[in-house]
């Protein structure tokens, strides 16, 4: 696998003439051209059920286009085997879900370091920057829980949803992946928690110079981002 060299204008995700549809259904997604550059903070607006999950699965290399090209870190996902795409995702993408982010049988720190077990690259980076994956995890947890004392070895079952989301953010950021994809990470949070979470997420994304892809149907958040696209721009019906 080719290791891409970091570059400010580097294209992390590139889409050309993409078409995707579930078998037996009309084409769902279509996109002629889309670029995601390093350092961008992209907001994708779209309600649930608009093909958002499918788009994220394509961006993460879990699904591949029916036709056209989707390159992730300059590699055409359509031409890679499933295992290679899994490695690509492990190495370069951090994921935050709407909720249920944490593995119930792992403690806080173990949840955070989880990506480092599937990606040697992220493990190495965490170790180089902080002296070890656990140290990296503890640092991220400290930064995301500035006003709270948190035991990294505590089970995750007693955390509030807001706390769980912050642990998930720490996990998405550990080992400095190039891309952080957040799929409605705030929709399960109340207003105060939402604002606090966005603030902390931006701080840490900036600190690790990651590229953020944020999907939400909450238009009030759009203002925080330097680029906004609509999910409709990726939909097949709008581009006949």
């Amino acid at each position: 696998m080719r290791e891409p060299t970091p570059d400010v204008n580097e294209e992390l995700i590139e889409i050309e003439n993409l078409r995707f549809g579930w078998p037996g259904a009309a084409p769902l997604l279509g996109c002629d051209r889309f670029l995601l550059r390093r350092g961008e903070h992209l907001y994708i607006r779209g309600p649930s059920g608009s093909g958002k999950s499918t788009l994220l699965n394509l961006l993460a290399g879990v699904l591949t286009p029916d036709s056209g090209r989707l390159s992730l870190m300059q590699q055409d996902t359509g031409s890679l085997a499933a295992a290679a795409r899994d490695r690509l995702r492990a190495d370069h993408i951090g994921f935050i879900f709407q909720q249920f982010n944490l593995v119930p049988y792992l403690n806080l720190a173990e949840n955070v370091v989880l990506p480092c077990h599937f990606s040697r690259r992220r493990a190495t980076r965490a170790a180089e920057a902080h002296g070890g994956v656990t140290a990296a995890a503890r640092l991220l947890l400290q930064r995301l829980f500035v006003e709270e004392e948190l035991d990294p070895t505590a089970p995750v079952s007693r955390l509030s949803v807001g706390q769980q989301q912050r642990v998930a953010a720490a996990r998405a950021l550990v080992g400095d992946p190039e891309i952080v994809i957040a799929d409605e990470p705030t929709s399960a949070l109340d207003f105060d928690a939402r604002a606090r979470f966005i603030e902390l997420l931006f701080e840490q994304v900036q600190a690790s110079r990651a590229t953020l892809v944020f999907v939400s149907h909450d238009p009030t958040l759009a203002a925080c981002f330097d680029r906004t696209v609509d999910i409709d721009d990726f939909r097949a019906e709008t581009r006949p």
Partner: peptide, 16 residues
């Protein structure tokens, strides 16, 4: 199923 989706998202392959 959620646990599996989370594991997949952090880079676990089908094999894992």
């Amino acid at each position: 199923r959620r646990e599996m989706a989370v594991l997949r998202s952090v880079g676990a392959g089908y094999r894992h």
